[in-house]
């Protein structure tokens, strides 16, 4: 490296530049926060039931097998669009029934097929979970996933 770039200069560029990028990042994060609340997730109200559903999702660590909006483990199918895949994104009652039927049928016990555990979930929680998944499904994710397979 040439003599123009002394150690002190390199250090000052590092500090100054980093502060600049942190400030820009914070501003964009604040804007994104507003966008999420006001626009991309505003299609369906974030009710207490949806919040409870998110809690059920977390308590059972579903994320360590499934992906949700493409993030998580890659062992089991994408869940962010599952309500669309089942064709029940706009039908809370049927959504609950299908989800409940699915969950009760686990584990399938089929030899050579990946197994989903059985979870102890009350009816209230199951309804909440179903609403949470419908809520997640209506998020504006810029067109992702490419198709219903997720």
């Amino acid at each position: 490296m040439a003599e123009i770039l002394t150690k002190t200069r390199a250090r000052n560029i590092f500090y100054g530049g980093s502060i600049f990028f942190v400030v820009v990042f914070i501003a964009l994060t604040a804007q994104s926060h507003r966008h999420i609340v006001k626009t991309s997730t505003a299609g369906m109200p974030l009710t207490e039931q949806v919040a409870l559903g998110k809690h059920v999702w977390e308590k059972n660590s579903c994320i360590n097998c499934h992906t949700l909006h493409g993030e998580g483990a890659y062992f089991a199918p994408e869940i962010g669009n599952v309500m669309t895949r089942w064709g029940v994104a706009d039908d809370p009652e049927t959504a609950y029934e299908i989800l409940d039927g699915w969950m009760q049928a686990q584990p399938s016990g089929i030899e050579g097929r990946r197994q989903m555990p059985h979870f102890e979930i009350t009816e209230e929680e199951m309804r909440a979970l179903s609403e949470f998944l419908r809520w997640a499904d209506q998020t504006d994710t810029q067109g992702w996933p490419p198709n219903d397979a997720g």
Binding site: S32, H35, G70
Partner: peptide, 16 residues
């Protein structure tokens, strides 16, 4: 790396 965080903000409900 700081603004690079954006590569995780494509499809999670964050702006385009």
């Amino acid at each position: 790396g700081i603004l690079g965080t954006g590569h995780h903000f494509y499809w999670i409900g964050t702006p385009g």
